[in-house]
Amino acid sequence: MKGIGVQTKNVVDDKCPTEGFAMLKRAGFSCADFSLNSYLLNTNIYRSELNEFFSRSIHELTQFFAPHKKAAQEAGITVNQMHMPYPIYVPTGDRELNDYLWNEVAPKSVELCAFFGCPHLVVHGFKLARFLGSEEAEWERTQAFLDSVAPRAKELGVVLCIENLYGGIGGHIVGGPCCDAKKAAERIDRMNEKYHAEVLGFCFDTGHANLVGLDFERFLSTLGDRLKVLHIHDNDGISDLHQIPFTFAKTRENKSSTDWDGFLRGLKGIGFDGVLSFETAPVLTAFPEELKMEALGLIDKIGEYFAGELGR
């Protein structure tokens, strides 16, 4: 196992990144998932409310993030994965919005990922099946987007990682892009063959998988070594809550209603040796500020427990 990580969101602050990365280190983490997506929020993108953050030049952006990079290095934290802002395409948005997302936000995210020396950039596939009529047509659009950033990602040694997502129907969460492991595996292989390099991999999101009843072990077994990074978090099977694993039960026996054993069996089965990375930023706003360290410490401890189980 290469380490245990968590999102930088709600921990690392732009005003004093040193403090945040040091906090992660004190809590026990060795890695971080840099939340680039928090610089352009999805809620704002859907409302076409863009900020100017990604309008800056690459030079300006790298200058902006230089203190973050330095702070991570000083704290001994490896930025092993990063999240590109999402969505990168809004079907009901105007051309200006989508051009900005495709031509400014996406390529600059790749550059910033490389600037941090981070090997994995998580990207969201497009949610267009309803409009286009099929998941295949939806993937074609996602692939066109990936093709627009893949050559530069290849040059910079960044692996783009597609993630299992969900959609909503009357408040009921249903499977979305990349929820079919077989198709994802085929598409990743096809893309990597095309570029003669590993430009595409997978990010398995436990919370999203739990919401749509995926069989963790089976899904991971199908992905095999295409699995590059993780978003580990828990929920009640109903809403995307991004909470600490083992916190939800549904029966009088009070056993976890998320199949963590299946998750571990799946990882073990494919010999996963990446980072056990938690996507649990909302935990840190749910807990009182005074308990933030303890909350982070518990997340790290769960990571250690997972690592221990995987090492058995």
């Binding site: 739990n210 009843g213 995926l214 069989d215 039960a249 029966t251 209603s257 998320t258 199949d259």
Partner: peptide
């Protein structure tokens, strides 16, 4: 579908 501690998942 199968019941995993009260959560119905793909079976």
């Amino acid at each position: 579908c199968r019941d995993f501690n009260g959560h119905l998942i793909r079976g």
